[in-house]
Design a protein around this nucleic acid. Structure first.
Lengths: 240, 240
DNA sequence: GGATCGGCATTTGTATGACAATTGACGACG
DNA sequence: CGTCGTCAATTGTCATACAAATGCCGATCC
């Protein structure tokens, strides 16, 4: 019932309940079982269970009241940009709808982040971006390495903006990016167009061309979205 | 030591510790006192204290290890878009630097949100936006009502996008918006230009003019940023 | 009959004490 | 000098008890 992967028991319980809520097994406004029942079901003490529920409470997923029990809140109250919430959602399986939302968000702030990274990023930050791009190029034969490098490339851009909120946003969607990169690279080994656009984004940032970096990132997002749409379509046909 | 404003004790402890961390009283990498010491200092049981710490842990503010104690994590690990974290930061006092970051974020999302609200929003959602604008206009004499209406106006735009992540973002920055609106309306009773721009954003959204709405919102943000800069400058001169 | 008020039962909130697990520090030993 | 084991400090988990809040329902009063 509880898959504790080495972490603390409390964290395992949090993840278990969080996944159930985010995946929709527990619907909003639905009362969770009472603490006593959940303790029995999960095989943990009330202390541990309550600490887990408190963590979910802190993320806005649930609200507890004496006598009424603990209930799942409406999704509009969730801290959707909580990294764990987002990770649980991704674990539950991404849907085309989710991808639409994700790319709308990315379209909002990634091009802008490129612009800021170009105009404000330090030499060292620019160097890191370039290094991650080089790693993408180098890892032609290893999909895992390529995905990881791609992820780090995008996160390095956020870091170079100097805006801690953009950095946090990047960390939050990390899991979502990882899955979508994996998914899109699953089939086609290395889309030439996207690789070129990564390079153009990288170059524009390093030469301080904010407008250009922004423009190339928009193109990259469009291309990526298209690739991903096909990949997801494929994967849904194969094993839904 | 603990200002419990009617909420649960655990929430009061969470807020107390959260404020100390976010405000910088407790620096990153600094070890918090041991659980026993904090219990004594705050006058609560270990159960309550631990539930509070777990909530902070869930927000990425702290990490706990046996023997090493509980330590504040580096800010890059914080879930900055957690509504409570953001609220604590605002309570601790906003700085010009914070406003810069906030407006960069707003610039990323709000114009785009206007565009989506215009092209995808339902009649009802558009009506709500219009109603909030009307309330802004009507509340010429009541600064508090005007601020509240302004806030709801912006949140209604996020809601009209239909993208739950944009909605969540709006909820997250709610506290920050509230304070900045209050601050900017503190001096000048009602900046004519900003009022007009609100109307233009509203009209453009309702007539489905995404591009226009986006453009007007950018202008509104620029104007608002300028007003706020002056107001903050004033307020910092008065009582820092 | 309907509304209002108060007691009751249920559920979460808090407190307390105990023990387990982890891990850094220090000393013993090869 | 390095390596390993022991120890102690701290968090992690468990069990139990009681307090507080609150929905439910019946009693009571108009």
């Amino acid at each position: 019932m509880l898959s504790r992967g080495g972490g603390r028991l409390c964290s395992a319980v949090t993840a278990e309940l969080g996944r159930r809520i985010v995946s929709g097994s527990l619907q909003p406004d639905e009362s969770l079982p009472t603490e006593a029942e959940m303790c029995a079901a999960l095989g943990v003490s009330r202390t541990t269970l309550r600490e887990a529920v408190k963590r979910l409470h802190g993320k806005g997923l649930v609200v507890a009241n004496p006598r009424r029990g603990t209930r799942v809140r409406a999704t509009r109250f969730w801290n959707q940009f909580d990294s764990e919430v987002l990770a649980w959602r991704v674990e539950a399986g991404i849907t085309p709808e989710f991808l639409d939302y994700l790319y709308e968000i990315r379209d909002c702030f990634e091009p802008r982040a490129c612009c800021l990274a170009a105009t404000r990023g330090s030499e060292a930050e620019h160097a890191r971006i370039r290094a991650h791009f080089a790693e993408i190029v180098a890892a032609t034969d290893d999909a895992g390495r390529r995905v990881a490098a791609d992820l780090e490339f995008h996160l390095a851009i956020f870091a170079a903006t100097g805006n801690p909120y953009l950095v946090s946003l990047g960390s939050a969607i990390r899991a979502a990016l990882h899955v979508s990169f994996s998914l899109s690279q699953q089939r086609s080994p290395i889309p030439h167009q996207e690789l070129r656009l990564h390079g153009q984004v990288c170059d524009a940032i390093i030469r301080g061309d904010g407008e250009g970096a922004q423009r190339y990132m928009r193109q990259l997002l469009d291309a990526s979205r298209a690739t991903l749409g096909l990949a997801l379509h494929e994967s849904l046909k194969v094993a839904p």
